[in-house]
Nucleic acid binder design. Structure first.
Lengths: 239, 239
DNA sequence: TCAATAGTGTCTTTAAGACACTATCGA
DNA sequence: TCGATAGTGTCTTAAAGACACTATTGA
């Protein structure tokens, strides 16, 4: 319990607490995660998640937002941030201080392209290619957990809309589901489900003109949970 | 990132990390949480979750199991333990070391009755009465989060069976759903859903004789996820 | 025999899944 | 005019929800 920290802090073990962020966005109709180059002895050149230590006066969430800004150049208002999991096996290396990582998922639409920011130190990587990147620490595991988290949330919540910048079209929203689930979705069935789910999307009455037939535009609706849910086809379960 | 802990540990802020456990079980067809008496200056006599600091050589999960054993007298094999969330706002009290709590949910069947163990220091409290107990720290919030977590998991996973000791009957399983969701469930519809969900329960062929008509017995099935899901009636959404 | 508990079946409504063509526009 | 994109409707099947009576036993 907390109060032991006051009464006998000399006995309480010391940890460093880190925030690691799985930043997800869609590029080119594929789900990408932002990786940064590790610059640290023993890990130089390895890819890793943006992250770093939580500062003394800072909440866990603020630390995640700060790392997002500093390491990923992503402004807080551009993403939805949700806590994923805390990781922290005891380290074998006895020189190392014990570290607990609180991992977060940050979802955004049209997040800045790698080249626009700092291409040499950061890169958007398709999530199905992370195994080839040989990530540092246990970050591959954390990315997998984050992607599976997003897959589940798309079923029961209106989270998919945060991958779209407003206003958006239904085909755009459908491509979010297709990219995150790695499945193709029938447009007719999809439109029926989205429009029947109360408060998922709100029509603006406007249309957007693209290369083909114009598409009606929508804003995010007021609902958080989806009724009825939009379930994954069997066969895209688990990361 | 972790390695900074090796290279410049003097700069990394120091935290204490605690494990707090929301132990849930059914008593008398109601969902109960185990609370213990805080014994610490400033909080004496307040109810709190079992928990304590993570030790240096111990994983986060092991710490939760240890607290479960030491503070709640619950052996590890009697529960399913799942991580809930990490909490850790900066503390106002400047004497206090900064604490991050990793909260866990522990679910079990027929966990020992309070009087049998250490009634003066621990008590099973119905989850809908925790507001009246004026819990210490932010533990009321954590309990609510844990209960809502369990409510959601009952929809999409086979978690409900861990509230039953094997072998169990379908009415017993139904009462789990009723207690956790706070709703009454039609026995005919419930049996249909449970028996149609592949791998949820396995019949033993045995029956148990009670006060009325004997009921067939079941074991937990091999499935983890529920297909199709068993969704809450609208009206018992959110904690 | 009665109090307690458990099991069961049908109908209606809702949602899912499968499936192919037409509409609108820009180049 | 053609290539690209978007919209739409029907049928079948699966699942949900509503609903009341019978079966079995121990006390």
């Amino acid at each position: 319990m907390y109060t032991a920290a006051v009464t006998n802090s000399s006995e309480t073990p010391e940890f460093a607490v880190a925030a690691e962020v799985v930043v997800l966005t869609l590029h080119d109709h594929r789900l990408h995660v932002l990786l940064t180059k590790a610059t640290l002895p023993g890990f130089v050149g390895r890819w890793a998640l943006p992250g770093g230590f939580v500062l003394p006066g800072e909440s866990l969430e603020d630390a995640a937002y700060r790392e997002l800004r500093e390491e990923a150049h992503v402004p807080p208002e551009d993403v939805r941030l949700e806590q994923l999991h805390a990781y922290g096996e005891p380290v074998v290396d006895p020189r190392a201080e014990r570290v607990v990582s609180v991992a977060w998922v940050a979802l955004g639409a049209d997040l800045p392209d790698p080249d626009e920011i700092f291409a040499a130190r950061a890169e958007w990587v398709p999530v199905d290619e992370i195994a080839e990147r040989n990530l540092a620490f246990d970050h591959e595991r954390i990315v997998r957990d984050g992607v599976e988290w997003a897959r589940e949330k798309l079923e029961s919540t209106t989270l998919a809309t945060v991958f779209c910048s407003e206003p958006f079209t239904l085909p755009e929203l459908r491509r979010v589901y297709e990219a995150v689930w790695g499945a193709t979705i029938d447009p007719r069935n999809f439109q029926r489900k989205v429009l029947h789910a109360d408060g998922f999307v709100t029509p603006t009455g406007e249309v957007v003109h693209g290369r083909g037939r114009p598409a009606p535009l929508f804003l995010r609706g007021s609902a958080t949970r989806l009724h009825p849910a939009i379930l994954r086809p069997v066969g895209c379960i688990s990361a």
